[in-house]
Nucleic acid binder design. Structure first.
Lengths: 178, 178
DNA sequence: AATGAAAACGCTTGCCG
DNA sequence: CGGCAAGCGTTTTCATT
């Protein structure tokens, strides 16, 4: 898992500030790239008050460190014929490990997200398909995965917003850093 | 809603082009941009077998038509101090409209996604914060929204994958789009 | 009307102060 | 971290189909 990226939860109060590879300027660059992933380095430099070369160096380090994991275009699902979204809770059986189930879920292209969760269910996945018929087909595929027991499907009626840039880590609104 | 995206009219080349504003070549470009949102037009042209100018024109139309809605950098949440994710089901009361509730949810920066759903709950939202203390604070804020009744919180133990490019609309695996 | 080619412009990117 | 310079991609324009 991606836990070792920036070190354990220890906030390291006092002492070496070098431990945090992501400083405040990096956070501003990250926030700008989350809003516009195609912003040029010159643009970013103007936004944060740095030269393009400096921004380039910082972004390269952020990418190498695994902080920035990629850049992706977002698409209107309806426009590409994916009009049905559902959240599916997956109850486990004891016939397979969670890792194997997760790997099998990853093989299904219609499963966009997969979370291992606490509670009665082992996973919650987000599925996006074209029609309710396809949803039925997909649920059948899910249930054929070894280790998958009962499924609990919640149909999404409308997506109000999704994968929004979360700047809670940029300010100290709610993070309560201390 | 966004079904009739008055896009480019009938296309000649590429084979059987119907009235669909998004033809097969567009889908390949979209798929490439979902994988790498910073791909240059020259790169895209090489990928799909088109010139850079043609790709540029097509992408511009896709953006104008609202098919491509944006480009965003993806960040490792742990690296920016957001180590706690939760899925929160929101039960409604009858004191407010769903639109007002959704708007209020949109004011909270830690709420990354918001889905109106069928079933007992009115919404399911994804919340991302730094600590479980912050999660408690956030749930308090959620419950103070008029129209929000009981909440049902599922803590995410690990994110196996998230917001993956869904190419179910690109192939005919499961869409049966016809 | 869409495509491909060419040209001017602007950005990227390595290197040094 | 900033500035410079070389190389490359972008973006407009134009001719072609």
């Amino acid at each position: 898992m991606t836990q070792e990226t920036s070190g354990p939860p220890g906030k390291g109060p006092g002492g070496g500030a070098h431990n945090d590879p992501v400083d405040q300027l990096d956070r501003k660059i990250i926030a700008a790239l989350r809003v516009n992933g195609r912003a040029t380095y010159a643009d970013l430099g103007r936004s944060v008050g740095l030269s393009a070369s400096s921004v380039h160096e910082r972004v390269g380090k952020l990418e190498a460190a695994g902080v920035i994991t990629g850049y992706h275009a977002t698409v209107d699902p309806n426009a590409v014929g994916l009009g049905v979204t559902a959240l599916v809770g997956i109850h486990p059986t004891d016939t397979a490990t969670e890792d194997d189930v997760a790997a099998a879920l990853g093989e299904l292209p219609e499963v966009e997200s997969c979370y291992a969760v606490a509670g009665d269910e082992a996973f919650v996945v987000k599925v996006r398909v074209a029609t309710v018929d396809d949803l039925e087909l997909s649920l059948g595929r899910l249930r054929r995965i070894p280790g998958v027991g009962r499924t609990n499907t919640t149909v999404v009626l409308s997506t109000r917003f999704e994968s929004r840039p979360n700047n809670a880590g940029l300010h100290e609104d709610l993070t309560g850093g201390a």
